Simulated assay, not measured.
Amino acid sequence: MAKVKYYYDAETLSYRKIEVKKSVLYRKTIFGFMAVLLIAFFGFIGFSQFLMSPNERAQKHELDNLMLQYQVLNKRMEESSNVLGQLQERDNNIYRTYFEANPIPEEQRKAGFGGVNRYKHLEGFDNSTMIKELTKNVDVLSKQLVVQSKSLDEIVQLAKEKEKMLASIPAIQPVKKEDLTRMASGFGMRMHPILKYPKMHNGMDFTAPTGTPIYASGNGKVIHAKRSSTFGKVVYIDHGYGYTTIYAHMSKIKARKGQKVKRGDLIGYVGNTGRSVSAHLHYEIHKDNRPLNPIYYYYGDLTPEEFLAMQKAAEEEGQSYD
Protein backbone atom coordinates (compact mmCIF):
# COMPACT_ATOMS: atom_id res chain seq x y z
CA MET A 1 0.00 0.00 0.00
CA ALA A 2 1.39 3.44 -1.05
CA LYS A 3 2.42 5.73 1.76
CA VAL A 4 0.11 8.77 2.15
CA LYS A 5 1.85 12.15 2.56
CA TYR A 6 0.40 15.32 4.18
CA TYR A 7 1.32 18.99 4.38
CA TYR A 8 0.43 21.69 6.98
CA ASP A 9 -1.96 24.40 5.74
CA ALA A 10 -1.22 27.62 7.66
CA GLU A 11 -4.52 29.27 6.68
CA THR A 12 -6.77 26.52 8.00
CA LEU A 13 -4.32 25.50 10.75
CA SER A 14 -4.77 21.87 9.71
CA TYR A 15 -2.97 19.05 7.83
CA ARG A 16 -4.08 18.32 4.28
CA LYS A 17 -3.46 15.27 2.13
CA ILE A 18 -0.92 15.71 -0.78
CA GLU A 19 -2.61 14.82 -4.05
CA VAL A 20 -0.23 13.38 -6.72
CA LYS A 21 -1.13 14.21 -10.36
CA LYS A 22 -1.64 11.27 -12.67
CA SER A 23 0.83 12.60 -15.29
CA VAL A 24 3.57 12.78 -12.68
CA LEU A 25 2.69 9.31 -11.49
CA TYR A 26 2.84 7.93 -15.04
CA ARG A 27 6.21 9.59 -15.63
CA LYS A 28 7.70 8.13 -12.48
CA THR A 29 6.37 4.70 -13.41
CA ILE A 30 7.91 4.85 -16.92
CA PHE A 31 11.28 6.11 -15.68
CA GLY A 32 11.36 3.43 -13.05
CA PHE A 33 10.58 0.75 -15.60
CA MET A 34 13.34 2.01 -17.95
CA ALA A 35 15.81 2.06 -15.09
CA VAL A 36 14.97 -1.54 -14.29
CA LEU A 37 15.46 -2.51 -17.99
CA LEU A 38 18.85 -0.79 -18.21
CA ILE A 39 20.05 -2.39 -15.01
CA ALA A 40 18.87 -5.74 -16.26
CA PHE A 41 20.56 -5.24 -19.68
CA PHE A 42 23.97 -4.27 -18.35
CA GLY A 43 23.70 -6.87 -15.66
CA PHE A 44 22.98 -9.50 -18.30
CA ILE A 45 26.02 -8.47 -20.35
CA GLY A 46 28.27 -8.66 -17.37
CA PHE A 47 26.72 -11.90 -16.29
CA SER A 48 26.98 -13.36 -19.81
CA GLN A 49 30.66 -12.45 -19.88
CA PHE A 50 31.04 -14.16 -16.60
CA LEU A 51 29.15 -17.20 -17.89
CA MET A 52 31.15 -17.47 -21.22
CA SER A 53 32.70 -20.85 -21.78
CA PRO A 54 36.51 -21.13 -22.14
CA ASN A 55 36.05 -21.84 -25.86
CA GLU A 56 33.91 -18.73 -26.33
CA ARG A 57 36.44 -16.63 -24.42
CA ALA A 58 39.25 -17.97 -26.65
CA GLN A 59 37.25 -17.18 -29.79
CA LYS A 60 36.51 -13.67 -28.57
CA HIS A 61 40.19 -13.13 -27.72
CA GLU A 62 41.20 -14.38 -31.18
CA LEU A 63 38.66 -12.09 -32.86
CA ASP A 64 39.91 -9.09 -30.88
CA ASN A 65 43.49 -9.99 -31.83
CA LEU A 66 42.53 -10.30 -35.52
CA MET A 67 40.92 -6.87 -35.45
CA LEU A 68 44.07 -5.43 -33.89
CA GLN A 69 46.25 -7.10 -36.54
CA TYR A 70 43.94 -5.78 -39.26
CA GLN A 71 44.38 -2.23 -37.98
CA VAL A 72 48.19 -2.67 -37.85
CA LEU A 73 48.24 -4.14 -41.39
CA ASN A 74 46.05 -1.33 -42.68
CA LYS A 75 48.45 1.20 -41.16
CA ARG A 76 51.46 -0.47 -42.79
CA MET A 77 49.64 -0.57 -46.12
CA GLU A 78 49.02 3.15 -45.87
CA GLU A 79 52.70 3.83 -45.04
CA SER A 80 53.89 1.62 -47.92
CA SER A 81 51.53 3.40 -50.29
CA ASN A 82 52.95 6.77 -49.21
CA VAL A 83 56.55 5.59 -49.73
CA LEU A 84 55.64 4.21 -53.17
CA GLY A 85 53.98 7.51 -54.03
CA GLN A 86 57.17 9.41 -53.23
CA LEU A 87 59.21 6.97 -55.33
CA GLN A 88 56.79 7.37 -58.24
CA GLU A 89 57.13 11.14 -58.05
CA ARG A 90 60.95 10.99 -58.06
CA ASP A 91 60.81 8.44 -60.88
CA ASN A 92 58.75 10.71 -63.15
CA ASN A 93 60.26 14.08 -62.22
CA ILE A 94 63.93 13.20 -61.65
CA TYR A 95 65.07 9.81 -62.93
CA ARG A 96 63.10 9.67 -66.17
CA THR A 97 63.65 13.37 -66.84
CA TYR A 98 67.43 13.02 -66.45
CA PHE A 99 67.58 10.11 -68.87
CA GLU A 100 65.19 11.80 -71.32
CA ALA A 101 62.49 9.15 -70.91
CA ASN A 102 58.76 9.91 -70.99
CA PRO A 103 57.07 9.90 -67.56
CA ILE A 104 54.63 7.07 -66.82
CA PRO A 105 51.03 8.41 -66.96
CA GLU A 106 49.15 8.54 -63.67
CA GLU A 107 46.27 6.48 -65.08
CA GLN A 108 48.71 3.70 -65.98
CA ARG A 109 50.27 3.70 -62.51
CA LYS A 110 46.98 3.71 -60.59
CA ALA A 111 44.75 1.74 -62.96
CA GLY A 112 42.26 -0.52 -61.17
CA PHE A 113 40.90 -3.91 -62.06
CA GLY A 114 37.91 -3.99 -64.38
CA GLY A 115 35.69 -6.74 -65.70
CA VAL A 116 34.02 -9.37 -63.50
CA ASN A 117 33.65 -9.09 -59.75
CA ARG A 118 37.09 -10.23 -58.61
CA TYR A 119 36.05 -10.38 -54.98
CA LYS A 120 32.75 -12.27 -55.20
CA HIS A 121 34.29 -15.22 -53.35
CA LEU A 122 34.81 -12.97 -50.32
CA GLU A 123 31.12 -12.15 -49.92
CA GLY A 124 28.83 -13.76 -47.33
CA PHE A 125 31.10 -13.39 -44.30
CA ASP A 126 30.50 -11.32 -41.17
CA ASN A 127 33.29 -8.92 -42.17
CA SER A 128 33.07 -9.21 -45.99
CA THR A 129 33.28 -5.45 -46.59
CA MET A 130 36.46 -5.15 -44.53
CA ILE A 131 38.07 -8.19 -46.15
CA LYS A 132 37.18 -7.07 -49.69
CA GLU A 133 38.54 -3.57 -49.10
CA LEU A 134 41.84 -4.87 -47.71
CA THR A 135 42.24 -7.39 -50.56
CA LYS A 136 41.53 -4.70 -53.14
CA ASN A 137 44.12 -2.37 -51.57
CA VAL A 138 46.72 -5.16 -51.62
CA ASP A 139 45.99 -5.86 -55.31
CA VAL A 140 46.27 -2.18 -56.29
CA LEU A 141 49.52 -1.76 -54.35
CA SER A 142 50.93 -4.94 -55.93
CA LYS A 143 50.12 -3.68 -59.43
CA GLN A 144 51.72 -0.30 -58.73
CA LEU A 145 54.84 -2.09 -57.46
CA VAL A 146 55.04 -4.11 -60.70
CA VAL A 147 54.75 -0.92 -62.80
CA GLN A 148 57.42 0.82 -60.68
CA SER A 149 59.73 -2.21 -60.80
CA LYS A 150 59.59 -2.27 -64.62
CA SER A 151 60.24 1.47 -64.68
CA LEU A 152 63.34 1.10 -62.50
CA ASP A 153 64.59 -1.74 -64.73
CA GLU A 154 64.24 0.65 -67.67
CA ILE A 155 66.07 3.41 -65.77
CA VAL A 156 68.97 1.00 -65.06
CA GLN A 157 69.26 0.23 -68.78
CA LEU A 158 69.09 3.93 -69.65
CA ALA A 159 71.81 4.65 -67.06
CA LYS A 160 74.05 1.98 -68.56
CA GLU A 161 73.44 3.38 -72.04
CA LYS A 162 74.06 6.93 -70.80
CA GLU A 163 77.36 5.84 -69.24
CA LYS A 164 78.34 4.15 -72.49
CA MET A 165 77.38 7.26 -74.49
CA LEU A 166 79.34 9.61 -72.21
CA ALA A 167 82.42 7.39 -72.57
CA SER A 168 82.05 7.38 -76.37
CA ILE A 169 81.51 11.06 -77.13
CA PRO A 170 84.87 12.81 -77.84
CA ALA A 171 85.91 14.66 -74.69
CA ILE A 172 89.72 15.12 -74.57
CA GLN A 173 92.46 16.63 -76.71
CA PRO A 174 94.01 14.02 -79.00
CA VAL A 175 97.47 15.41 -78.13
CA LYS A 176 98.42 16.00 -74.50
CA LYS A 177 98.73 19.63 -73.42
CA GLU A 178 102.33 19.23 -72.34
CA ASP A 179 103.28 17.83 -75.78
CA LEU A 180 101.80 20.72 -77.78
CA THR A 181 103.90 23.44 -79.36
CA ARG A 182 100.70 25.43 -79.90
CA MET A 183 97.20 25.27 -81.30
CA ALA A 184 97.94 26.50 -84.79
CA SER A 185 94.60 26.83 -86.52
CA GLY A 186 90.97 26.61 -85.50
CA PHE A 187 87.64 25.74 -87.08
CA GLY A 188 86.36 28.06 -89.84
CA MET A 189 87.48 29.84 -93.01
CA ARG A 190 91.28 29.81 -93.26
CA MET A 191 93.87 30.54 -95.93
CA HIS A 192 95.00 27.21 -97.35
CA PRO A 193 98.83 26.98 -97.17
CA ILE A 194 99.21 25.24 -100.54
CA LEU A 195 96.19 26.34 -102.59
CA LYS A 196 96.62 29.96 -101.38
CA TYR A 197 92.91 30.86 -101.14
CA PRO A 198 90.41 30.90 -98.26
CA LYS A 199 88.95 27.47 -97.65
CA MET A 200 86.73 25.99 -94.96
CA HIS A 201 88.87 24.34 -92.31
CA ASN A 202 86.70 21.60 -90.77
CA GLY A 203 88.92 20.83 -87.79
CA MET A 204 91.74 22.06 -85.59
CA ASP A 205 95.48 21.88 -86.16
CA PHE A 206 97.78 21.06 -83.22
CA THR A 207 101.51 21.59 -83.82
CA ALA A 208 103.82 19.15 -82.06
CA PRO A 209 107.13 17.46 -82.86
CA THR A 210 107.06 14.50 -85.22
CA GLY A 211 106.53 11.31 -83.24
CA THR A 212 104.36 12.93 -80.52
CA PRO A 213 101.70 10.39 -79.39
CA ILE A 214 98.11 10.80 -80.59
CA TYR A 215 95.25 9.42 -78.47
CA ALA A 216 91.63 8.45 -79.19
CA SER A 217 89.33 11.14 -77.79
CA GLY A 218 86.50 8.70 -76.98
CA ASN A 219 85.55 5.02 -77.00
CA GLY A 220 84.81 3.62 -80.43
CA LYS A 221 85.82 1.43 -83.35
CA VAL A 222 88.49 2.18 -85.96
CA ILE A 223 86.78 2.21 -89.36
CA HIS A 224 89.75 3.46 -91.43
CA ALA A 225 93.50 3.28 -90.83
CA LYS A 226 95.05 4.14 -94.17
CA ARG A 227 96.98 6.63 -96.29
CA SER A 228 95.30 9.26 -98.49
CA SER A 229 96.62 11.95 -100.80
CA THR A 230 95.04 14.75 -98.72
CA PHE A 231 95.24 13.52 -95.12
CA GLY A 232 98.34 11.37 -95.50
CA LYS A 233 98.36 8.65 -92.86
CA VAL A 234 94.92 8.98 -91.26
CA VAL A 235 92.68 7.19 -88.74
CA TYR A 236 88.88 7.40 -88.59
CA ILE A 237 87.06 6.29 -85.41
CA ASP A 238 83.33 5.64 -85.22
CA HIS A 239 82.16 6.44 -81.68
CA GLY A 240 78.50 5.59 -82.21
CA TYR A 241 75.61 7.95 -81.48
CA GLY A 242 76.41 9.68 -84.81
CA TYR A 243 79.97 10.75 -83.82
CA THR A 244 83.10 10.19 -85.94
CA THR A 245 86.60 11.60 -85.39
CA ILE A 246 89.45 12.02 -87.89
CA TYR A 247 93.20 12.11 -87.04
CA ALA A 248 95.28 13.16 -90.06
CA HIS A 249 98.90 13.63 -91.23
CA MET A 250 100.35 10.98 -88.90
CA SER A 251 103.94 9.85 -89.21
CA LYS A 252 102.95 6.35 -88.08
CA ILE A 253 99.61 4.58 -87.48
CA LYS A 254 99.33 2.32 -84.44
CA ALA A 255 95.63 1.41 -84.72
CA ARG A 256 94.21 -1.06 -87.21
CA LYS A 257 90.87 -1.19 -89.00
CA GLY A 258 88.20 -2.94 -86.93
CA GLN A 259 90.02 -2.37 -83.63
CA LYS A 260 87.97 -1.27 -80.63
CA VAL A 261 89.61 1.57 -78.73
CA LYS A 262 88.94 3.41 -75.49
CA ARG A 263 89.37 7.07 -74.70
CA GLY A 264 93.10 7.72 -74.18
CA ASP A 265 94.34 4.72 -76.21
CA LEU A 266 97.38 5.37 -78.42
CA ILE A 267 96.38 5.30 -82.12
CA GLY A 268 99.40 6.91 -83.86
CA TYR A 269 102.05 9.64 -83.90
CA VAL A 270 102.18 13.25 -85.14
CA GLY A 271 103.70 13.65 -88.61
CA ASN A 272 103.78 15.70 -91.81
CA THR A 273 102.29 13.30 -94.36
CA GLY A 274 99.77 14.15 -97.10
CA ARG A 275 98.90 17.73 -98.01
CA SER A 276 100.67 19.39 -95.07
CA VAL A 277 103.34 22.05 -94.64
CA SER A 278 104.58 21.21 -91.14
CA ALA A 279 104.46 18.52 -88.47
CA HIS A 280 101.03 18.71 -86.85
CA LEU A 281 97.81 16.82 -86.14
CA HIS A 282 94.70 17.79 -88.07
CA TYR A 283 91.72 16.74 -85.92
CA GLU A 284 88.03 16.70 -86.90
CA ILE A 285 84.76 15.77 -85.17
CA HIS A 286 81.65 14.91 -87.20
CA LYS A 287 78.10 14.41 -85.93
CA ASP A 288 75.70 12.74 -88.36
CA ASN A 289 78.21 13.44 -91.17
CA ARG A 290 78.33 17.16 -90.34
CA PRO A 291 81.64 18.72 -89.15
CA LEU A 292 81.57 20.33 -85.69
CA ASN A 293 83.94 22.73 -83.98
CA PRO A 294 86.18 20.43 -81.87
CA ILE A 295 86.87 23.20 -79.33
CA TYR A 296 83.59 22.36 -77.55
CA TYR A 297 84.67 18.75 -76.99
CA TYR A 298 87.68 19.13 -74.67
CA TYR A 299 85.73 19.36 -71.41
CA GLY A 300 87.51 16.22 -70.17
CA ASP A 301 90.91 17.84 -69.68
CA LEU A 302 90.76 21.66 -70.04
CA THR A 303 90.28 24.13 -67.21
CA PRO A 304 87.97 27.11 -67.90
CA GLU A 305 91.04 29.37 -68.23
CA GLU A 306 92.71 26.99 -70.72
CA PHE A 307 89.49 26.71 -72.71
CA LEU A 308 89.17 30.50 -73.01
CA ALA A 309 92.80 30.79 -74.13
CA MET A 310 92.34 28.08 -76.75
CA GLN A 311 89.07 29.63 -77.94
CA LYS A 312 90.78 32.99 -78.41
CA ALA A 313 93.64 31.40 -80.38
CA ALA A 314 91.22 29.33 -82.51
CA GLU A 315 89.20 32.42 -83.51
CA GLU A 316 92.26 34.17 -84.94
CA GLU A 317 92.10 34.13 -88.71
CA GLY A 318 95.22 33.04 -90.48
CA GLN A 319 96.69 30.22 -92.45
CA SER A 320 95.98 26.58 -91.70
CA TYR A 321 98.67 23.88 -91.88
CA ASP A 322 96.76 21.70 -94.38
Rank of each mutant, 00 (worst) to 15 (best):
A314W: 00
L68G: 00
Y243K: 08
Y8A: 04
I169V: 15
K176D: 08
Q59V: 03
K110F: 05
H224K: 15
L73M: 11
H239W: 12
K110T: 06
M1T: 09
L292C: 15
V36K: 14
N102L: 11
K257H: 08
K254T: 01
M165F: 00
A159Y: 14
K257M: 13
N65C: 01
H280P: 07
Q88K: 10
T244R: 12
N293W: 06
P54C: 01
P54K: 10
L51N: 05
Q319F: 00
G258P: 13
Y241P: 10
E154Q: 05
T29M: 09
G186C: 05
D238H: 13
T273Q: 07
N93T: 15
S81H: 05
T245V: 07
Q259Y: 06
Y8R: 04
V261Y: 13
M204F: 01
D179Y: 05
E317V: 11
Y298L: 15
L51A: 05
R90I: 13
F113I: 14
S142H: 12
V4E: 10
K22D: 04
V235N: 03
E315A: 13
Q148T: 09
K17V: 15
K143R: 15
A208V: 08
G300A: 10
Q259P: 10
V175D: 03
T97A: 09
K5I: 05
I172W: 06
L266T: 03
A248K: 03
R96L: 08
L122M: 14
K176W: 04
M165E: 11
E306K: 05
K196L: 07
A255I: 02
V24F: 01
Y215K: 07
A101C: 04
R190W: 04
D64W: 03
G300V: 09
M310K: 01
D301C: 13
G300W: 12
R27M: 03
G232T: 05
E100M: 09
E79P: 00
K120P: 00
R227F: 06
L68E: 02
G188W: 00
N289Y: 14
K226M: 12
K162C: 06
P174V: 13
A35L: 11
I223M: 12
V235T: 06
D153W: 04
